[in-house]
Amino acid sequence: MSFLLGLTGSIGMGKSTTAQMFAEEGCAVWDADAAVHRLYGEGGAAVAPMGAAFPEAIEGGAVSRDRLKEVIARKPEALQRIEAIVHPLVAADRAAFISQATADIVVLDIPLLFETGADAGMDAVACVTIAPEIQRQRVLDRGTMSAQAFEDIRARQMPNAEKCRRADYVIETDTLENARRQVQDVVRDIRDRLLHA
């Protein structure tokens, strides 16, 4: 039975980089965003139900994220219908990954871990964090999002301080070296707990 570690953190906090560090420590890592990409891709499990609900969002046999954003911009209430379709499919993908994992620690990278109540199924939760001004700079430096879009996303996410308060481990991603050291500490702590369980 693997130890389930939920990994969360707001946009631009360094979660993907941190998840990669856990993988390098021998953990199995499942990524919620990657699961959504698989589900939305050609032949993905979300294509048919999304096509039935939002035919305008289908492009080339796949769900177009850009078209979905346009649907939500026109009809904000559509977001709830989208989530009702996608969340159970993502949960099934996650359950399949866990059932096949052979690593002692399974890291579940879920941006909206607390917001969706997924923390209830975890043995522990790690939250990545960084100062708000660095977070904002990182996101804007990517050049893929406007300052307004970033603020909109941040407004929909649980405040960072609340996520950190609810987490069992907090990993500060100010430098790669510091983040890696903290990841190694978390892995060591969990492996100690498993050894003495």
Rank of each mutant, 00 (worst) to 15 (best):
L5M: 01
S10W: 04
G12Y: 01
M13V: 10
T17L: 12
T18V: 11
A19I: 07
M21Q: 12
A23M: 06
C27L: 06
A28I: 01
D31E: 13
A32E: 15
D33M: 11
H37K: 15
H37F: 13
G41I: 03
G41R: 08
E42N: 12
E42W: 07
G44W: 14
A45E: 10
A45S: 06
A48Q: 15
P49L: 14
P49F: 15
P49Y: 15
M50N: 04
F54E: 02
E56H: 08
G61P: 02
A62E: 03
D66I: 11
L68I: 15
L68W: 06
E70V: 14
P76I: 07
A78W: 10
Q80W: 14
A84H: 11
A84I: 11
I85F: 12
P88F: 09
P88L: 12
V90W: 10
A91G: 11
A96S: 04
S99L: 05
A101Q: 02
A103C: 04
D104W: 10
V107H: 05
L108P: 04
D109P: 01
P111T: 00
L113P: 04
L113D: 05
D119Y: 12
D119I: 04
D119G: 08
G121W: 09
G121P: 06
A124K: 00
I130W: 07
I130K: 07
E133K: 09
Q135D: 05
Q135V: 07
D141N: 09
G143P: 01
A149F: 07
D152V: 06
Q157M: 10
P159S: 03
A161D: 12
R166S: 06
R166M: 14
R166H: 08
A167P: 03
D168N: 03
V170P: 02
V170K: 04
I171P: 03
T173Y: 09
T175W: 09
N178K: 12
N178R: 15
Q184W: 10
D185V: 08
V187K: 02
V187T: 03
R188F: 13
R191K: 14
L194D: 03
L195E: 11
